[in-house]
Computed example of a mutant assay.
Amino acid sequence: MNKNNYMNKKELIRQLVDETGFKEREVSITLDCLLCAIMKELASDHSLVLQNFGTFRSVWQVERPGRNPKTGEPKTIPSRYTVKFRPGNAFLKALNEDK
């Protein structure tokens, strides 16, 4: 993992290569296809449920007032779609095993 305490896409690909023995190119293509499929499903206003992992769903956020954090100037945040993720029970259990 890099010094920023997060894993980037390239590091994820390397880890999957090490764990599966597949070629880096194959893993990269597979990951890109997976991410594209997730985005297409959410863009068509569907939820995506990955058993034992969690649920992704698109949510419409209405226009709302906000502020520029640097200047404090009032600003309207436009309405838009965003993504919500709810982890599954197995995910939460694995996340909290060592705690």
Rank of each mutant, 00 (worst) to 15 (best):
L31N: 03
I38Y: 00
D32I: 02
G54L: 05
G54K: 06
E24H: 12
D45W: 07
L50K: 07
S47A: 06
A37I: 05
K40M: 10
T55Q: 10
D32H: 13
E41Y: 00
I38W: 02
L42G: 01
S44N: 15
L34H: 06
C33Q: 11
Q51E: 09
R25Y: 07
E26F: 04
S44M: 09
V49I: 11
C33L: 12
M39L: 14
I38M: 09
H46I: 08
G54H: 06
V27W: 00
I38C: 01
L42H: 04
C36D: 15
R25D: 12
E24K: 14
M39R: 13
D32M: 08
R25A: 15
H46A: 14
K23G: 15
I38G: 03
H46Y: 13
D45T: 09
L35D: 01
R57S: 13
H46N: 15
V49T: 11
A43M: 10
L50A: 08
L35R: 03
K23Y: 08
T55E: 14
K40A: 13
C36I: 01
R57M: 11
S28Y: 05
V27F: 08
N52V: 00
V27Q: 00
V27A: 03
K23W: 04
I29Y: 01
T30P: 00
E26M: 04
E41N: 15
G54T: 02
D32Y: 01
S47M: 03
R25W: 03
S28I: 05
L48G: 04
L34V: 07
T55M: 13
K40N: 13
A43R: 13
F22V: 05
L34N: 03
S28H: 01
F56A: 04
R25H: 04
D32W: 05
S47G: 10
F22C: 14
F56M: 13
C33R: 00
E26V: 06
T55Y: 09
L50Y: 09
L31Q: 00
L34R: 05
Q51M: 07
L34D: 07
L31D: 03
C33S: 07
H46V: 12
E41H: 09
L50F: 06
L50P: 02
M39C: 11
Q51V: 11
V49C: 14
C36A: 14
K23N: 07
L42W: 09
D45S: 13
L34Y: 07
A37Q: 11
G21S: 09
L42E: 01
R57Q: 10
M39K: 06
M39P: 00
K23I: 12
K40Q: 12
G21D: 12
F56V: 04
T30A: 15
I38P: 01
C36N: 10
Q51I: 01
A43W: 06
L34M: 08
L48C: 08
V27G: 06
T30L: 11
A43L: 10
F53D: 01
K40D: 15
F56T: 06
S44A: 15
L48P: 02
R25L: 14
V27S: 07
G21F: 10
G21Q: 04
G21M: 10
F22S: 02
V49A: 13
G21L: 14
D45N: 15
S47Q: 12
K40V: 06
D32V: 10
M39F: 08
L35S: 10
Q51H: 04
K40W: 02
L31T: 04
